[in-house]
Amino acid sequence: MSELAPFPTSEYTRRVERTRERMREAGLDAVLVTDPANMNYLTGYESWSFYVHQGVLVTLDHDPVWVGREMDAKSAEVTTWMDDEHVLSYTDDYVQSPHDKHPMDYVAAVIEEYGYDDRTLGVEMDAYYYTARSHARLTDQLPEADVQDATLLVNQVRLKKSDAELDYMRQAAELAETGMQAAVDTIAEGVRESDAAAAIYEGLIGGTEEFGGDYPAIVPLMPSGDYTGTPHLSWSDREFEEGDPVIVELAGCKHRYHCPMARTLTVGEPSPEMAETAEVVIEGLETTLDRIQPGMTAAEAEAVWSESIAKHGIEKDSRLGYSTGVGYPPDWGEHTVSLRPEDDTVLEPGMTFHVIPGIWFDDFGVEISETIHITENGAETLADFGRDLFVV
């Protein structure tokens, strides 16, 4: 067991067994896990190596096997709970090879060696780093295998967090607080957006006296001025001006566990429309958090928000939130449950969500969000940061 792994071996073996239960339900003999968040969840593997092909092979009959680039094998040995004999690597001539070599050739050979080349194999078809060429190459090398889509199989296992996972998310919440406080303290007339971003990063990663932070899966998002109706802008060299609205969305991250949070600021006094919209957002958020209970569906939780803002003649087409936890670039979402009308997933204790009651218009927007944990009695807000419209 590596000293760098953030959980005891028992936590990882429990996750693997839960994954195998879902594999049996789906009729799968093996799953090739390539989503770096799922790899981390099952093994503890941590390295900035997801730009090359890698994966964890989970089977019903053998211990999991990490397969990746030779220079990254040491990372697997020092960050995972697996023994070294279950860390397998391909040589560097497989990487972006000008010859007819591809890492999935090696992966296919491993699958064949373990006796799964003619069995039912699941792959994460919609994972960011499992490319079309990877799939074509793997299936070409395993003509007898029944290859099926298992994109969200491990993601579904991740939905309910253990107490140890929640502890890291609470630390991530403290990091989110330091990052957001840095934003409030730095953003002002004449300050460059890039300088505010630098201060936020210092807060997120410098952290507290007790612990520092990890890099978040998404950069701080900071649409400002006329662009706050455009939620996913980052920053530029532009200087903040008097009257600018600014939305800051960020996440603290600890051992890859995220706590996203968004707040809205104004440089100087807000316009009447901005102040009124903020009141609507805050009222809707607090009403929703007060009424969320285990046993509700995701759709029922969203309906509380929609009903609240409808009283003010406002509709919001985008989802209210999504499940969150372990994440790697480009996303901290789990891609499973969404708080929206079509989702009938029942909320259960241990689930965690980023609740984003943002309202965006063409010329401005207001976003004030929280990450919550579904408890036996309702919703626990992980971060503790004021929800006012901040005037800086």
Rank of each mutant, 00 (worst) to 15 (best):
T120D: 07
E112A: 14
D344L: 09
Y322Q: 07
R158W: 07
K160S: 12
P330N: 02
S97H: 06
R119Q: 11
E77N: 05
L60H: 06
Q181H: 09
Y328S: 00
P349R: 04
Q156A: 10
R263F: 08
L347P: 15
E85R: 15
I247G: 08
T375V: 01
A379P: 03
G321S: 01
D344W: 01
V392N: 12
E209T: 06
D167I: 09
P216R: 11
H373N: 03
I356V: 15
K316G: 02
E124S: 15
T59W: 13
K160W: 08
A301G: 01
E85N: 09
A173N: 04
W235V: 03
G44H: 00
T277H: 09
I187C: 12
V392A: 00
L88Q: 15
A199C: 00
R69F: 06
F361W: 10
D226I: 12
H373A: 04
L382R: 05
A303G: 09
T120R: 10
A172M: 05
N38P: 07
G115P: 12
S338G: 07
V219Y: 11
T288R: 14
G206N: 00
H232M: 05
I368E: 14
V58W: 07
D317E: 13
R291V: 02
T324P: 01
V78D: 04
Q156H: 15
N155D: 13
D149G: 14
S271Y: 02
K161V: 07
A109P: 05
T277G: 00
E283A: 13
V280L: 09
V355A: 13
T19V: 06
T208F: 10
A383M: 09
T264F: 04
R15K: 01
E302N: 12
E112L: 03
A108I: 00
D214W: 13
N377Q: 02
P223Q: 06
R340E: 15
R20V: 00
G321W: 06
I292T: 01
D126V: 11
A196W: 06
H99R: 09
E85A: 12
V248N: 11
V67Q: 03
Q181K: 04
N377V: 00
G378K: 00
T79L: 13
P36E: 02
T277V: 13
H258A: 13
T336M: 03
G284V: 01
F361E: 11
V31F: 01
S162M: 05
V65A: 11
Y116Q: 12
R20Q: 06
I282A: 10
L204K: 04
D100I: 08
H335E: 11
V246Q: 02
T131H: 05
Q156C: 06
P341R: 12
M125T: 14
S97I: 10
V56Q: 04
R18N: 08
I282D: 00
A76W: 03
F353V: 05
F240G: 06
E11S: 05
F211T: 09
M351L: 07
M104W: 06
T151E: 04
A30Y: 05
T131P: 05
F240S: 02
T34V: 15
Q96F: 14
E189M: 10
L88V: 10
T288M: 10
